[in-house]
Amino acid sequence: MYCMLTTEGRFRKNDQQNLQILVNKWKEDSPKDKFFYQPVPEIPVDINTDYHGFLFVHQTEFQSRLLIKYGQEIILMDSTYNTMQYEMPLHLICFLTNVGYKVVGAFVIGKESRLNIKEGFAVLKKWNPGWSPNYFMCDNDGREIGAIENLFEDCTVALCDFRREQAWERWLREKKHHLSD
């Protein structure tokens, strides 16, 4: 379903127009799946603000059923950065099943901020009434934690072990802490 917006596959030069065309096609091809697309506003956004404007959220019908049926206990947010041409973080919403972690929703935001992350979650929450996880696991990132705690008030946020260990190892290697002298 997903494809790259390469020069050969472009309908128009503007990537946002290309994405709008793709979203319309995906909606037509998969009418039971959910797509939300908000392009960057025509009026330039102040780059010093937390708000960017761009938001793309996707959830298949199957993912929605899984989330409502099993996603009330522990949810994991896996965030991916700097893996493509544009510096736009991808957030995968997952939970552990008897056969491994399953993605139950995804969103891409234009700028990593609490407000933008909350906006992505708000779309997923609107699509899945009654979704209220007891626990949420995420990176040690104040923007992610703040967005989750603000939108899911009764939810306890835990830090992902892998990311915690990764952050600790990076901190230990930094020369400014004078640990290798």
Rank of each mutant, 00 (worst) to 15 (best):
P31I: 01
K32I: 00
K32Y: 05
D33Y: 00
Y37G: 04
Y37S: 03
P39C: 07
E42V: 09
N48E: 14
N48S: 10
H52V: 00
F54A: 01
F54L: 08
F54G: 00
L55F: 03
L55C: 05
H58N: 08
T60V: 00
E61A: 15
F62C: 13
S64T: 08
S64K: 15
R65Y: 12
R65W: 09
L66C: 12
I68T: 14
I68Y: 07
I68F: 04
I68K: 15
K69R: 13
Y70H: 15
G71S: 06
G71E: 07
Q72Y: 08
I74R: 06
I75Q: 01
I75E: 03
M77W: 06
S79D: 09
T80I: 11
T80R: 11
N82D: 13
M84F: 11
H91L: 05
H91Y: 15
L92E: 14
I93F: 12
F95I: 00
T97D: 14
N98W: 06
G105C: 12
A106G: 12
A106L: 12
F107Y: 10
V108Q: 04
I109G: 12
K111C: 09
K111D: 06
K111M: 10
S113F: 09
S113H: 12
N116E: 15
N116R: 05
I117R: 05
G120I: 01
F121S: 03
L124D: 09
L124Y: 13
K126E: 15
W127F: 04
N128L: 06
P129I: 01
P129E: 13
